[in-house]
């Protein structure tokens, strides 16, 4: 089980309350997690990755075990702590409220 933390506006869009828990087939990578996330919550398609290019959108970043994975290859295996659900995969978005 992999845990994913979404920004508040995407939690609202996906109608989820807290962390999302996903079963990911194969190795836990950014791509496999996001594929599983979008399969379960199709309304998130295009909000995290571009619809066409599948590139991370520039107002979103990915973190695992406190480290920024945003510029890593989407197919690089994520840390074991994330793969085993000990640590969540963080999707962090820009917010501007003050």
């Amino acid at each position: 089980m992999i845990r994913v933390v979404l920004p508040a506006h995407l939690r609202t869009l996906a109608h989820v309350d807290g962390e999302v828990q996903l079963e990911v087939k194969g190795v836990a990578t950014q791509r496999s997690i996001l594929d599983a996330l979008e399969a379960r919550y199709p309304m998130l398609c295009g909000t995290i990755r571009d619809h066409v290019t599948q590139q991370r959108r520039p107002f979103i970043r990915f973190f695992a075990c406190e480290q920024d994975w945003s510029n890593e290859s989407p197919d690089t295996p994520l840390p074991e702590l994330v793969a085993t659900g000990v640590e969540p995969f963080l999707v962090v978005g820009a917010v501007a409220g003050g």
């Binding site: 506006h9 959108r57 520039p58 107002f59 978005g93 820009a94 917010v95």
Partner: peptide, 10 residues
């Protein structure tokens, strides 16, 4: 965040 979200998204 090199670019902001499109207006209305967040």
């Amino acid at each position: 965040f090199p670019e902001p979200p499109p207006p209305g998204l967040v």
